[in-house]
């Protein structure tokens, strides 16, 4: 159906898409995980309530999250250029993807940590745990399945967003779909890219949920 060149291009597209999605998810967690922990700890019912930190960090997250991704993509062009030297291609796309996802990750992490049973935290306090130990050894451990399913969902969203960045030359499958499917009316290639995106999404989602199930000891098994 397709010639060697097209297949080669699609394979590269898959590689670029995975590269953008996975690297941006990872970097988004490097920023979002500590921010989420800070949000949860500084919250009203948190370990160390602090209205100023909680309020300002929460406000920053909300502002970034309220800007539509496509607009963020364009707004960040000068910043991206300054950081990676160009504003198009897969590596450049990672910058807006991370900026977009980090506040989302922070909120997902905050919500997961807030769900940890306060009784368990109290028990740890009664054992003489300090706040750092409570975060690292109780909250992150007890919330790990919620954190992992959050990460799975985040990866799925970033997969979609990475494809969206194709409209401004972002690279990957989205880029191929826009260039061939939209500009050149090559419907066949567009359909294949969409199918590939669906496949990748399914893989991420199922793999993530499989790990979650494996690691969750809360439910009775067998």
């Amino acid at each position: 159906m397709f010639d060697q060149k097209t297949i080669q291009m699609l394979l590269e597209g898959i590689g670029d898409t995975l590269y953008m999605t996975l690297i941006s998810t990872a970097v988004a967690y490097v920023l979002g995980l500590p921010a989420g922990i800070l949000l949860s700890v500084s919250g009203k019912e948190g370990l160390h309530p602090n209205r100023i930190i909680h309020g300002s960090l929460g406000f920053l997250c909300n502002i970034i999250r309220s800007v539509p991704f496509l607009i963020l993509l364009i707004l960040l062009i000068p910043f991206t250029r300054a950081l990676v030297g160009k504003s198009y291609g897969s590596t450049a796309t990672i910058v807006p993807l991370v900026i977009c996802a980090a506040p989302y990750v922070a909120r997902v992490v905050e919500a997961a940590l807030n769900e940890v049973d306060p009784g368990v935290i109290e028990a740890a306090k009664a054992m003489g745990a300090d706040n750092l130990q409570i975060v690292t050894k109780v909250m992150l451990v007890e919330a790990r399945t919620a954190l992992l399913s959050g990460a799975t969902i985040t990866t799925g969203i970033l997969l979609g967003y990475s494809a969206m960045s194709g409209t401004v030359g972002g690279g990957g499958l989205g880029d191929i779909a826009v260039r061939y499917g939209y500009y050149r009316w090559e419907t066949g290639i567009m359909v294949v890219t969409v199918l590939l995106l669906i496949l990748i999404f399914q893989l991420i989602q199922n793999l993530g949920m499989m790990i979650v199930r494996k690691l969750d000891h809360r439910k009775r098994q067998g």
Binding site: D117, E122, V141, D216
Partner: peptide, 10 residues
């Protein structure tokens, strides 16, 4: 405690 408060993931 009444609710035992064990770490469920350990």
């Amino acid at each position: 405690f009444q609710g035992f408060n064990l770490l469920e993931q350990k």
